[in-house]
Design a binder for these strands. Structure first.
Lengths: 263, 263
DNA sequence: AAGTGGTCTAGACCACTTT
DNA sequence: AAGTGGTCTAGACCACTTC
């Protein structure tokens, strides 16, 4: 079933002087399995396999890249660990998607004290295009003045206003995102981004602080002015570690906490 | 060099009916490499190899447990990923210790806006033994009324009071911990715990909120009353997922932020 | 029965560190 | 040169899912 491997691989066997190299010129130099990982990531990024799709089997990939199954396996191991793909024994390996229960809480760390997790409802206050302020442009790796989509919303947990969020999204990627579309789409925004803008969030970096609610924020979250709120400033990245979203959330932590595991 | 493997392993080869099993009765049932991982963890826990020590080489361990080097390798892979051991190519595999630069910031997520990371200085306000309040006992898996060591301290970053912390430590493990010892020990507390109490923190779980400074806290951190502070309630675990420390920190986040990566 | 991921082995060779 | 972890291969067999 496995394809024959007539020529040994140049990386595994560099003594084969001057042989025709098949792969070596992919990145600079790294182990074979990492080069394979790069090739697979490339296919994910290019959309050869879309979120939810099944990847070719390990043996097929091994044949395609002319390496052993074990090497493909090690590449996929790392991708699975980074949550880019998802393995299911007996079924196959699948491109990760935000349309899964498991993915919901990867980027949503706010937990209720009660243990009862309600999925939040969103109310969008503003959705518009504007020119990126300097700070936003810097964080999203844009030129100052480039277009961004700006969103402001309140999230209700069990009908209680709990989160006030502002988002700045790369304007070129999220062109055409409207309030109507956001309102009719139920479920996490990242699901919408994936479906309609071919953009999957891979990882994010947050800076968390405690701040005092200013009068406007206080009225939206129905607390007194100067009430302490948790502020989370997040930059999210898609394939290729490209920043595409800046988000600033203000969380009311009277009935909820931000959960974090230190490993 | 490698020891011979006359009998195949029962897990790898269950058709060997009724053969004398060597390993299988360790946990219930799990893959061989996970059983090996358990045995290695056991030796870490029992102190056969202490923090900073080098583990036997993969081949030695393979011989000891009568499995292949690849299986030992996979066990160690997981331990390395959980930061229980640390691999150094060409040198060996070492028991992780808190006395390393890399380990310092694993449990210290407070970063300065300036980028300049000063190592904090501690001032201990209280160190005493007391009976665990119900909530503390519950989180540390103790009986209500069991002895705990209570510590209260302020941490100064670049001479600015930034963190007010209270700790509750399992009384049996940390018997004999005194203010004098804490004051003369420079460096992170977890280093002291490891050296003098044979207790290595393996992981921790935090609940983070925004709270208002009460008058006493405000005066210690030199802010106005009701100033917003970040509260982090942490439960730390040693080997065997045993909780041994409860810590509640109040962070002044005017010049610092709590850094978190979502993966 | 066939296909998929998961485990285990045995052996070769590479890269890095120390002697 | 010797010892360590790191990579790669080839092949066997297991566990789970689907047909």
């Amino acid at each position: 079933m496995n394809a024959p491997l007539p020529d040994s691989n140049p990386d595994a066997n560099p003594s084969a002087a001057g042989g025709t190299t098949v792969l070596a010129q992919v990145p600079s130099f790294s182990p074979l399995y990492r080069q394979i990982k790069g090739l697979i990531t490339g296919s994910l990024q290019s959309g050869e396999w879309k979120p939810g799709d099944m990847l070719p089997s390990e043996f097929e990939l091994a044949a395609r890249y002319k390496v052993s199954q074990g090497t493909v396996r090690k590449a996929i191991d790392e991708l699975a660990q980074e949550h880019l793909v998802l393995r299911r024994q007996g079924k196959g390996t699948f491109v990760a998607t935000h349309h899964e229960a498991r993915a919901q809480f990867r980027f949503l760390r706010l937990m209720p004290d009660s243990g009862q997790q309600y999925y939040p409802e969103s109310k969008f206050l503003e959705v518009k295009r504007l020119r990126a302020p300097g700070e936003v442009a810097r964080l999203l790796d844009l030129k100052g003045g480039d277009a961004v989509v700006y969103i402001k919303r309140v999230q209700y947990f069990n009908s209680v206003a709990t989160v006030l969020e502002e988002l700045w999204l790369s304007g070129t990627i999220f062109k055409g995102l409207t309030a109507e579309r956001l309102n009719e789409y139920k479920g996490p925004m990242y699901g919408l981004f994936e479906l309609e803008f071919n953009t999957t969030m891979i990882r994010a970096s947050e800076k968390i602080r405690a701040v005092a609610a200013d009068p406007q924020v206080a009225s939206l979250l129905q607390v007194e002015p100067n009430w302490p709120l948790l502020s989370a400033e997040r930059v999210s990245f898609t394939y290729g570690d490209k920043p595409v979203e800046l988000r600033r959330g203000l969380y009311l932590t009277s009935q909820h906490y931000y959960s974090n595991e230190l490993n």
